[in-house]
Design a binder for these strands. Structure first.
Length: 530
RNA sequence: GAGCCUGUAGCUCAGUGGUAGAGCAUUCGACUUUUAAUCGAAUGGCCGUGGGUUCGACCCCCACCGGGCUCACCA
């Protein structure tokens, strides 16, 4: 076991602090490898919190490797043996599902018809989601583990400590549940439903429980092993910790009580709970809780439409134990923080303290950074009304001749995101004011002049000749001051009060398209007048 | 009822014992045949309140006030 030096012990980065706790746990148990776990409930399709949990756990795992050099695994554990509690409203074939309420998800037909069970379908979605980010993990199915007998020894142990476990959980329950509670949930031998019934008899020697079907009155003796029964949630978690010897698991603060109780149960089983971290939940823009029905959350898909995955990781990295508002405006900031961290990493004497190091698993890609910040890029996209990456690149090169997609792959991606951001959030809010009579004449003149060509105008490049053309048109009409002519162009054509040098804009936007832009604005004016 | 987070510039937020920070906003300036992504500068804080620890507290401890969330059925 590697003992931390003073330098590493003073790490200010939380993944290393967590990794240190894991290292101490292993040292105490004389273990030679670490097991990290993340869990998924049956109701959950993967969402932004799923990403956060797996990313954060992966960072702790990576830090653990750095710290100790010991091997480790990350188990993504799906609670797919849980009973279907209610029919989700976002799936097809809901009537069909009604008949399977209460049965383990892996024994409910897939309403989408693409997998052998609903559980398998959700598992596939989860794996595809995790794979899309390139997470290194092993998938585990609760149903498989139960059926394969991987929990059998632990389940018998639970049976032996049945009363003790009941005593731990019972005080936390309401009067109704208190009467019937058992950590053992036998599967009904005929219907397959996960039964929440009083356990009348516990036979430790044979590994069975006896219970009565409330509907038929028939008594059953069911084995707790081999997938004939499963455990109630908190006991299930504890049993899994014990059976697999899980070393690390983080969870949201909504599970604080569960962590407490499961830890008590695992100790009743004679084992030690893993190192646990409780993270804060996300709030919306107004500090309110995020609920799917209100739709005030921000989805992974939304985030990744407007900024790179690294920025989402950056957001998740910072202070997991503090409540953060998760809404649209945090995206550009997260992207810029990431870019700044990449830049800072180059000359850093303590890379472990830098989020970018963690985000990239300690191996930075070539040319990871961007010479231009995302905020600036968004601003630029807005100012020039960029509707294509090529147009944005044109202006970037004017500012930074050496920049190219090849020399800065991140910038190339950011450009695409900035165009999307402008398209969806900036462009729709533009206010195009109608042109006055004077301005209409001048705009017609401008369109006609553009059609005639720029060859007669002075200047070295196309942009400069176009600029002189625009200027000449303005002078032919009675604008006072001439600035009013340019104000007209921005306000009438681009829907904003300020804008780029217009010749450069036309050169990049295209002469023909600019003419269309002018004709469109004039047509809008006609409609308003009519 | 139990627990967790939070209060720092106008706004959004960094900052865990050693001279209060960033972005945005505001104002001024530079560049500009009108402008502009840009660059420079300025303005702006009893760090929620009151105690305590310390040579020294935004930071650690206690109390209070304000804002918010979670759990008490299931997972």
């Amino acid at each position: 076991m590697v003992i931390m030096t003073e330098q590493t012990a003073s790490q200010v980065s939380w993944p290393f602090r967590e990794a240190q706790r894991v290292a101490e746990r292993l040292q105490a148990k004389a273990k030679k490898s670490a097991l990290f776990e993340t869990g998924y409930g049956p109701s959950g399709l993967p969402h932004i919190g799923t990403f956060g949990e797996v990313a954060r756990t992966s960072w702790v795992r990576r830090a653990f490797t750095e710290l100790t050099g010991l091997p480790s695994r990350l188990l993504a554990f799906s609670d797919d043996m849980d009973g279907l509690r209610k029919v989700p409203d976002n799936v097809p074939n809901r009537d069909m599902l009604k008949e399977f309420i209460g049965r383990p998800l892996t024994r409910v037909p897939d309403p989408f018809g693409t997998h052998e069970s609903f559980g398998a379908h959700n598992n596939a979605r989860l794996r595809a989601f995790l794979d899309a980010f390139g997470f290194d993990y092993e998938f585990a199915s609760s149903s498989d583990y139960y059926a394969a007998g991987k929990f059998d020894a632990a389940l018998r142990h639970v049976l032996a400590r049945h009363e003790e476990i009941v005593q731990i959980i019972r005080p936390t329950l309401g009067p109704e549940r208190r009467a019937s509670y058992s950590p053992i949930l036998p599967l009904h031998p005929r219907t397959g439903v996960v039964m929440q019934v009083p356990i009348e008899q516990v036979d430790v020697e044979h590994g069975t429980v006896t219970w009565t079907d409330p509907d038929s009155g028939v008594r059953f003796e069911t084995a707790v092993t081999g997938g004939a029964a499963k455990l109630q949630w908190k006991a299930d978690w504890a049993m899994r910790w014990a059976a697999l010897d899980v070393d690390y698991e983080m969870s949201g603060k909504d599970l604080i009580d569960s962590v407490k109780l499961s830890s008590a149960i695992v100790q009743a089983l004679g084992a030690e709970p893993p190192v646990c971290l409780t993270y804060e939940l996300f709030l919306d823009e107004h500090g309110q809780k995020i609920s799917k029905s209100k739709g005030n959350g921000l989805s992974v898909e939304q985030w990744l439409t407007y900024a790179p995955p690294e920025s989402l990781a950056q957001f998740m990295y910072h202070a997991p134990q503090r409540a953060k508002r998760l809404f649209f405006d945090v995206i550009p900031r997260a992207a810029d923080e990431y870019i700044a961290n990449v830049a800072a990493l180059a000359g850093s004497d303590d890379p472990h303290a830098n989020p970018a190091w963690h985000i990239h698993g300690g191996v930075m890609p070539e040319q990871a950074g961007s010479p231009i910040g995302f905020g600036m890029l968004l601003n630029l996209a807005s100012v020039i009304n960029a509707d294509s990456a090529a147009m944005l690149w044109g202006f970037i090169r004017a500012y930074m001749p050496d920049a190219s997609p090849e020399s800065s792959p991140l910038l190339a991606r950011l450009v695409e995101y900035a165009v999307a951001y402008n398209r969806d959030f900036v462009a729709p809010k533009k206010h195009f004011r109608p042109a006055s009579a004077l301005e209409r004449d001048a705009l017609r003149d401008l369109a006609a002049s553009l059609r005639d060509g720029v060859d007669s105008y002075p200047g070295e490049g196309l942009a400069e000749r176009l600029q002189n053309l625009v200027y000449a048109v303005g002078k032919r009409h009675a604008f006072t001051p001439l600035k009013a002519w340019f104000d007209c162009l921005y306000q009438v054509l681009l829907g904003q009060t300020e804008g780029p040098r217009f010749g450069g804009f036309i050169a990049l936007y295209g002469v023909a398209r600019t003419v269309e832009l002018i004709e469109g604005a004039l047509a809008r004016g006609d409609m308003a007048a009519a």
